[in-house]
Amino acid sequence: MFESEILENGFMEGDKEHSNSSFAEVDPGKPASLTWQRRLDNEGNALSSFSLSLKEMIHMAPIGVRLWRYIREETAKGKGIIINPFVRRPVTSCHGVPLGGIGAGSIGRSYIGEFQRWQLFPRICEEKPVLANQFSVFVSRSKGEKYSTVLIPRSPELLKENEVSGIESWDWNLNGHNSTYHALFPRAWTVYEGEPDPDLKIVCRQISPFIPHNYKESSFPVSVFTFSLHNTGKTTADVTLLFTWANSVGGLSGFSGQHTNSKMTMRDGVRGVLLHHKTANGLPPVTFAVATREIDGIQVSECPCFVISAWIL
């Protein structure tokens, strides 16, 4: 039995990170004390399935027929169906904290780092990840050592499905043995302990802003990622973080055409790229904004477009 009180922010009473002030500074490089955790090389649990017996099928037949008729009528009118029990969906146990998720859509993220389960429009859910959406890291040290990798473990099955794009040529060197995912909605942390550089600890913190008394903007599928680096080696390290994002709303939408990207510059050193997506099938257009802030010691560069097969990491 716990004697300490569990606080709303996930820390235990008495933790140094906690303060009575709502404006207390939080160390983004340290996960909360109470989180759901999973190592990145964990393959997940196989979810059990079930089937109906003959007696159950007979009992459920009337409602099944009514649902089938309703779905057929709505489809004939060109309307989407919110719940369709006749469509088989992929079921996995790899889901993590999504980007957004309390109103105006969300983009899911697996615990290994894939951006998947796209729910940006009513009644539409694209389950599969867009592999071009990745964080990658490059490390070079003063004595000549160099390390680079995409920051998710290699998935031979997914790479095989996307081999036409050329994405298998990227550096998929992370094995995930020493990396751990921590989740506490609406936050998540991924701690890369000595991967890819054995003397470098990288912590990625993800948070979807929730603004008190502002449901509209809190409901957006928005997330902020911060990276903290801890160099335990005896030499200095130059670290480059790369974030790639496809102009896509999931599925094959990235190939529908007429999408445009453009650079943007805002005040306080904020720079980034706007990705204007001309959505097909009568759905409204979408604009993604990917941006970061340039401060002392951190240089920012942006590239509005690139060819996946030519982007050799």
Rank of each mutant, 00 (worst) to 15 (best):
L7R: 01
L7K: 05
F11C: 08
D15W: 13
S19W: 15
D27I: 05
S33W: 07
L34M: 09
T35E: 00
W36C: 06
D41V: 13
N42I: 15
E43Y: 07
E43A: 14
A46W: 14
L47R: 10
F50D: 04
L52H: 06
S53F: 01
S53Q: 08
L54D: 15
K55H: 11
I63T: 14
R66G: 04
L67T: 12
I83G: 08
N84C: 05
V91I: 12
T92M: 07
H95K: 09
G96F: 03
G96Y: 05
G101C: 06
A104F: 04
G105F: 05
R117L: 15
I124Q: 05
C125R: 10
E126L: 06
E126P: 02
V130T: 06
F135K: 03
V139D: 05
R141F: 00
E145G: 14
E145P: 12
K146E: 15
K146G: 15
Y147A: 05
I152K: 04
L158H: 01
L159D: 00
K160M: 03
E161R: 11
N162Y: 12
E163W: 15
V164R: 03
S165K: 06
I167D: 03
S169W: 08
W170E: 03
N173Y: 03
N175Q: 05
G176A: 02
H182R: 07
H182L: 03
R187D: 13
W189A: 00
T190H: 04
V191H: 02
Y192A: 00
G194R: 02
E195N: 01
E195K: 00
P196N: 07
D199I: 06
L200C: 03
I202D: 00
V203H: 01
V203E: 00
V203K: 00
R205V: 02
Q206T: 01
I207V: 15
I211V: 09
P212F: 13
P221E: 03
F225H: 04
T226P: 08
T226E: 13
S228L: 07
H230S: 12
G233L: 03
K234N: 12
T235C: 10
T235E: 14
T240Y: 06
L242S: 11
F243W: 12
F243C: 09
T244P: 09
A246N: 13
N247H: 05
N247S: 11
N247E: 07
S248W: 00
V249F: 11
V249E: 01
H259K: 08
T260C: 05
T260V: 09
G269P: 01
R271P: 11
V273R: 08
L275D: 09
G282H: 09
L283M: 14
A291P: 01
T292F: 10
R293M: 09
E294P: 00
I295D: 04
I295Q: 14
G297F: 01
I298W: 10
V300E: 00
E302T: 06
F306S: 14
S309W: 05
A310M: 11
A310P: 02
A310S: 08
A310H: 14
I312E: 08
L313F: 15
L313M: 15
